[in-house]
Amino acid sequence: MRQVLVIVGKEFGDRLRSGWVIACALVWLGAIALTSLFGLVQIGRIGIQGYDRTVASLLNLVQYLVPLLALLLGHDLLVSEREERTLALIIAGGVTRARALLGKFLGGCLALAFPLVLGLLIAGTIIGLSAKDKAVGPFLTMAFSGLGLGLIFVGVGSLLSVFCRTRVQALVCALLAWCIVVFAFDLIAMGTVVIVDSTRAAREIEAATDATHVTSIAETHNAFEGADDSAARIVAERSRRVAAWLAINPVDLFRAVNLPKSTNVAVPPWLLVSSVVLWLGGPLGMAVWKFRRTDL
C-alpha cells in the first residue's frame, strides 16, 4: 500500500507541477459559469439559473468534456513511463505490476477529480448564493456521476496505455475511443436495432436518438416548464425503453441518471451499479492482466 501511495503522490505531483490541475479547474469554473448564465438561451432566458436548470444545461458539456479529459489523462499513464524507461526502474525496485498500475490509475483519478470537484464546489456555491437555490440534489448527483464517468474513462485510458507501445498510438486510440462513446455509439446501436429487429426499428431508433442526442436538451427544459406535459411523458416512455442500451455506454448512462425527475427517466439501480462496476473493473482487470504479460 505504501508503494501505491508513493506512486499516487508522484503522479498527482507531476500533474500539479505541469499545470494540468489548475488548467482543468479553470476550465470547469468557466464552463459551469457560462452554462449557468447562458444555458437557457434556447428557451429565451439569460442569467444565473438554479441547480436543476444548470445541471440540465451542463449535461452535454460534462458528457463530452469529462471523458475527453479522462482519456487524455489516462492514455499517458503507463506508456510514457515505458517509453522513457523509468517504469523499468520502478518494477526492478520490487513494485509489483498490479501495484504500479493501481498507483498510476489512482494518481490519474486524483488529478482528474481534484479540479473537477474544486470547480463544481466553487460554481455550486456561487449558484446557490446567487440564485438562492437550496435544492442542491440534482447538482450533487451530476457532480458524483460526472466524477464516476471520469474515473471510468481514466480506467479505459489506462487500459489503452498498457496495450499501446507508443504515446502517439495511445493518443490516437484514446481519441478514437472518445469518438466512439460520445458520437458513434448511438449510430452503432441504431444500426444494430435495424439489423436485428427491423419491425420495431423505427420506434427504437426514435427512442435511442431522443435519449442521447444533443438537441433533446431543449425538450428537457420544456419539461421543466410544465407547459407541455406530453413532452415529459414522451421522454420518460422513450427512456424506459432504451435503458438497456444506455447501460452499455457509460456516457449515455450518465445522461440518463441526470435527466430531471419531471421527465420520469428511470434507470434501474441494479443496471446502474452493475454497469459502473463492469466499466470500472473490466478495463482495470484487463490492464493488469496485459501488463503482467508485457516485457519492459
Partner: peptide, 16 residues
C-alpha cells in the same frame, strides 16, 4: 517481487 525490494539495479541507460 518482494525479494526485489532488496535488490539494487543500475540500468545500462539510466532514465529518470
Amino acid at each position: 517481487d518482494s525479494h526485489r525490494l532488496h535488490f539494487g539495479y543500475l540500468p545500462e541507460r539510466i532514465a529518470l
